[in-house]
Simulated assay, not measured.
Amino acid sequence: MTETQTTEEAVSTARPSLLEARDLHVEFSSRGRRARAVDGVNLSIGAGEIVALVGESGCGKTTLARTLLGLERPTSGEVRYGGAALDYRSKALKAYRRQVQLVLQDPTGSLNPRHTVYEAVAEGPRIHGLPDEQEVVAEALSRAGLRPPERFFLRYPHELSGGQRQRVVIAGALALNPKVLIADEPVASLDASVRGEILALMLKLRADLGLSALVVTHDLGLAWNIADRVAVMYLGRIVESGPVEQVLTAPRHPYTQALMSVLPESPERVVLTGEPPDPTRIPGGCRFHARCQVLASGRAAEAGVDGKCRSEPLSVLPAVPGPQAACHYAELTG
């Protein structure tokens, strides 16, 4: 099956989505070489749904998130919101960014130390010319769990705890009343004791406001606790996706199995060998084959798919809600 056919299948079989990537490719020039940071991705996020995008550093997660936000333009393919292709003209992008907001992983870096909490949260409403600024800021802080909000208006970031700073960042996003949050490692810089509070807040926002979210993370434990669905990304492509319980309790792709093996409850540790992902040098065949523990152990040869693993590329996965994996061995063994 060709990649074009796969994309058409993705469009026809995916459930109605709020935010969607269709056959998305994003390329950069790197020291005279072409880096395929996002190399054919279909992904959908439904209304009120939380999707976790997981994978190790360098796999293309952040580039995909930035492209969904309209901060990067795709080389080919498209981003769709509410059924319409994203319009990159400045006025249309400004309107789009009211609906789709970014929550960064480092609240210390994303908050201006010279601005009070009030000024930080009011920045978005001022850019978009929203009325009743003080009321908007107070409601956003309150929804983010900073109550009473007036107590925080004149505080500076250095006067807050790490968890409170992350709540201010979330309040800044909520002030524009978005429909989708894209959260890039939202708890990575926080102490373990505070992570649960921020995750609980995100789930409450989904319950209270019907918010959708794409949570970008390398932490499968976080995905388990917050997501409805999970998409596992490797070297620019989603290699496995599906409902979080199915993917994380019975992972089919060897890469997902390796990621899962680092969790404390995992019975067996998988140590990946070979070079880490390099988007300027994507290998032939399965893009994971050079590091694959199933191929290295001889199990792929026993199943008669080792030649395919080394030489036959896999189709781009469609944006369907059910479980799926781009793996020759998984296709054969079920």
Rank of each mutant, 00 (worst) to 15 (best):
G162R: 06
S44N: 13
P277W: 10
G60K: 00
E72I: 02
V320R: 14
R269E: 12
S29N: 09
K91Y: 00
S76W: 02
E78W: 01
E150K: 06
S193P: 01
R80F: 03
A14S: 15
A14I: 05
E139H: 13
G334T: 09
R252L: 13
A144H: 10
C286I: 09
G129H: 11
L214T: 08
R291K: 04
F152M: 01
F28N: 04
L174Y: 06
M233N: 04
P323T: 01
L295T: 15
C59T: 14
G285Q: 05
I127M: 13
G48Y: 11
S297I: 14
L160Q: 06
A319T: 04
R252P: 01
G285H: 05
I50Y: 06
K179T: 14
L220Q: 07
V180E: 09
V11I: 15
Y234F: 14
P313G: 10
V262I: 15
E150R: 08
K94P: 03
T249F: 00
A65V: 06
E139P: 04
C327K: 12
I282G: 04
R97L: 00
A200E: 09
R15W: 09
L19E: 05
E20W: 04
N42L: 06
S17D: 07
V194R: 01
E49A: 07
P323G: 00
Y234S: 07
L201G: 07
G172L: 08
L43R: 09
V121I: 07
L64G: 07
E312C: 02
D278P: 03
L214F: 10
L111F: 05
G77F: 07
D184K: 11
R143C: 05
G334E: 08
A200T: 13
S110H: 03
E139M: 11
S29F: 06
A140L: 08
V168A: 09
R114I: 09
Y88P: 02
A84M: 03
W224F: 01
L295N: 14
A175P: 11
A227G: 09
F28C: 07
A207D: 10
P149I: 04
R229M: 04
A144Q: 06
V11A: 13
P74T: 11
H218C: 12
R98G: 02
L93T: 02
L19G: 11
V232I: 14
P178R: 12
K94T: 04
Q257A: 14
V230A: 02
A213H: 05
P264R: 05
Q164V: 06
Q5W: 12
R167K: 07
A326H: 12
E245K: 13
E139N: 12
V244W: 09
A258K: 03
L209W: 01
L130P: 02
L146C: 10
V137L: 08
P148D: 07
R281C: 13
P243Y: 10
S189T: 14
H128K: 03
V169M: 11
A10I: 08
